[in-house]
Design a protein around this nucleic acid. Sequence first.
DNA 1: TTTT
DNA 2: TTTT
Lengths: 162, 162, 162, 162
Amino acid sequence: MMNRVILVGRLTKDPELRYTPNGVPVASFTLAVNRAFTNQQGEREADFINCVVWRRPAENVANFLKKGSLAGVDGRIQTRSYEGQDGKRVYVTEVMAESVQFLEPRNSQGNDRGDNYSSRPGGQDSSFGNQNQRQPQRNTRLDEDPFAGGGQIDISDDDLPF
Amino acid sequence: MMNRVILVGRLTKDPELRYTPNGVPVASFTLAVNRAFTNQQGEREADFINCVVWRRPAENVANFLKKGSLAGVDGRIQTRSYEGQDGKRVYVTEVMAESVQFLEPRNSQGNDRGDNYSSRPGGQDSSFGNQNQRQPQRNTRLDEDPFAGGGQIDISDDDLPF
Amino acid sequence: MMNRVILVGRLTKDPELRYTPNGVPVASFTLAVNRAFTNQQGEREADFINCVVWRRPAENVANFLKKGSLAGVDGRIQTRSYEGQDGKRVYVTEVMAESVQFLEPRNSQGNDRGDNYSSRPGGQDSSFGNQNQRQPQRNTRLDEDPFAGGGQIDISDDDLPF
Amino acid sequence: MMNRVILVGRLTKDPELRYTPNGVPVASFTLAVNRAFTNQQGEREADFINCVVWRRPAENVANFLKKGSLAGVDGRIQTRSYEGQDGKRVYVTEVMAESVQFLEPRNSQGNDRGDNYSSRPGGQDSSFGNQNQRQPQRNTRLDEDPFAGGGQIDISDDDLPF
DNA sequence: TTTT
DNA sequence: TTTT
């Protein structure tokens, strides 16, 4: 079985960052990906693709991407379902991003969201590492540089609360 | 903007073949793709991914795949929305397959569905070619062999009603 | 059989544009793609991947990309071999780009190479269309916009000699 | 930067399994991937793509694939160069497989190579785990099932010398 | 509504 | 509910 998705598009709005009860960060965002072709009316439509990312890259996304940012995603399609408010099953198809690439120059005007987003609940960090034992591990890469722009500044140690 | 999906999985049921009013074939099917990892309970879950394919490969899919068939898809994620029966918008994310690969040996027991599915409305064929001028063209490849098994028999001319 | 490659990286130098005897444009360039991880010495290495692109996108590449440009490629791996000058066979693995995405803002300082590269031999154009009948057709899309930045200016008609 | 390759093809010969001085397994093999289109002479050519895989999946590949096996690869393009015997630099482009999917039914006639390939040098195992700290970790998945056929038998513990 |  |  194989399941691979690669996307490049722009965030339709600022990403949302949540934490699980155990303090694991999850970010979600939507990529607008313009189609390569135009429709019968000659307009270029877009697909709006919901993405989810876990752990450290989630924090990076929340920190460095915002509405309109150009970003690349390498991940997998995941499906799930939940009970809708009207009692019927709702089916969801989304992209689980294993890595997210920032395709705009570092520190382009206001790259850093600057929010005080880091409301990560304290005291739960001890349970952090164990949490996702059986989750794909590529999310955890400590040495991944999410910026395509290159540059030598390493964000990991200074900017991120790990 | 980039948008690429590759899947390998098994059909959850027989594909469905429809025709547009102009006689353009569309097949839809769902791929069950087992995840590479097991969940907290040690079970291997699957993602159920809806796929759509147009034109000739649609006919091939209807002809040669059935419930349980192992197949590969190379395509794009597409999103659309429609008015639900309760008046509210329903959002759909699916894979537009540009090519479909049959990953089981040709003529493995009962590869050919054998249905009389070819209820393609006659008389509309003239409008066929013009129809999708602005659609991606890779669907139209006349020389594509959807079987991975190789073999020298070419299905296109004999088995397909084109 | 499936064969799909997606790359995002930077051109190591200006692309080279050639024409076949029949006037079909071919561009070649090398993408430097930084690895997601660092090596034992803590350095981030890169892979240098040779790419080839045909027809209209070849002209676009020659026109709008240059050394250092950030670009995305969606294509296939191709292998070929030729007689080396010392008589022994040389094997080549390269990426046949089906589409190339320009990931830098249009008209960022000097996007347009401005070269008089269009030394396309005249008089051969008549043979152009027929030439590659059996080549993948995605190269031919007349409505593809190679810029991720969007914007409404369509380059195809004004800037390109088609 | 992004770098993703997905292939489905057949092994041109039995895979080769080596071990680093520290006992890390590496398998190499070549996939023949038939092209989706035919050439000017109407023949379907193939690309012959060299692949490398590390650690546990390397052992799996050596154990369960052989000449002619249908397999899928999800990985990255890597380039390297070395001093040729005639003193000049040789450039190599190959695919680093992060996961390999076996696309033929388990225990199809003689799936198991049955070779006594497991000449893994003893005494080095202690250094095994630490070895590739900075290598991508997806190779290490203990719960990945390389067979597309599904089935409940888990090969990892019984059949593999770990 | 899910495949082996 | 959508980006440039």
